[in-house]
Design a binder for these strands. Structure first.
Lengths: 216, 216
DNA sequence: TGAATAACCAAGCAAGCGCTTGGGGTGACT
DNA sequence: AGTCACCCCAAGCGCTTGCTTGGTTATTCA
């Protein structure tokens, strides 16, 4: 009954399944490469400071040709974010199903969120976190609905953790504190340093757990 | 020996003293009003999406007249951020001097940071947190030096807290988690809701404290 | 009272921006 | 063989951007 993390193979399988279901565009296709390149540029330079000419040049096409794939720049931003959430919802669902104690499920959520920020979806998720305000109002509403779906998994687990006495502050507020703590890692965590993501996730878990209840 | 928070009077006195020392520009002066207006606009719309025409209109002058006060838009951003840090360093120094136990000093740091984000310096600090990447490289270096000065107060207190067994994870990492958790409050905390900043600060403290050591 | 300095206006320039237009090439399927 | 979708190019339009220029008015202080 030890903690189980998603393997790279798990992640790839989830991805290819979502491609089959036409929920996510194949990163190999022209549209997919466009979104991937856009995600990287938006993360590195910001949405506003990335021009359609920058993006087109990075892909190797003319700037006008972008608008064959997407009607405008805003839509590209929306797609980058949407794909990021949809993929990570699936990953969270699978990670939760692989673990059975509340403590392990909580650790799974924390680790998933760190991985989403740092590993293969890093560019997309970074954009989601830091370029939120570049979304127009209509798209913000759409993304909020998707985020709520994702957040529900957190709230459920945290509510149970509170019932069991594992945490001792309001679980809605705890989620927000945790969300900030984890998202902020984008600003400082170095993937090739001494600290692994699993270690970081464990430390984060330890920070929030009521120590009386967690000596196992 | 109960916890002591800064009063509004304390904060005002610190401000006027910094004006006297010419470290901060008087918010009543033209330059000061310009910075305050800029801070608000930069927070609400983002730096890139705030045009010099927007800013000038909000102040009530022509857009070209802005450049009588500051040589370019980037310099305005830098000043907004710099003033924010300089003021809050002073506030932290005073808040620390008013409290004597490590636990109270830690609570003071947490509360100060929440207050900086939410209360009178909200606009300036929000810009500092969320418009960091709009700074050019040179200015980022300058601001980093100032931030280090501020961070040193946190590191000192957290190191002592760790020595006393009040916290049980690496204090450098804890600072980053806490920094993220607190900064993120900008995205959700409502100043006029049921939750006061003191309550929120207390909950945050409770989250990080090793519960064995804190039953007082 | 006179001179310096600070605060501002009116007009506009050069560059960069998102996006449009009209067309051409290519491969897949019928 | 024909056609239809897909993918892309070349050129540039209309607009907004940060900032400049040359000059006017208000304020301060010797």
């Amino acid at each position: 009954m030890a903690f189980v993390a998603l393997t790279q193979h798990d992640n790839e399988q989830i991805l290819s399944q979502l491609i089959d279901e036409s929920i996510i565009v194949d990163p190999q296709s022209p549209k997919g490469r466009l979104l991937g390149t856009a995600a990287t540029l938006f993360r590195d330079r910001g949405f506003d400071k990335t021009t359609v000419r920058d993006l087109a040049k990075a892909i190797g096409i003319q700037s006008g040709s972008l608008f064959h794939h997407y009607p405008n720049k805003q839509e590209i931003l929306k797609q980058v974010m949407q794909q990021a959430i949809l993929l990570n919802i699936r990953r969270v669902e699978m990670a939760l199903s692989l673990n059975h104690t509340i403590k392990d499920k909580l650790l799974a959520l924390i680790l998933c969120e760190f991985q989403a920020l740092i590993l293969d979806t890093s560019a997309h998720i970074s954009v989601l976190v830091f370029e939120w305000r570049a979304l127009n109002e209509e798209n913000q509403t759409i993304m909020l609905e998707l985020r709520d779906e994702y957040e529900q998994y957190w709230i459920d687990i945290l509510a149970q953790a509170q019932q069991q006495g594992m945490i001792n502050i309001d679980h809605y507020i705890l989620r927000r504190l945790l969300n900030g703590a984890i998202n902020w890692s984008l600003n400082w965590y170095k993937p090739n340093g001494d600290l692994s993501l699993k270690q970081l996730a464990n430390m984060t878990l330890q920070m929030v757990l009521n120590n009386h209840a967690t000596t196992k």
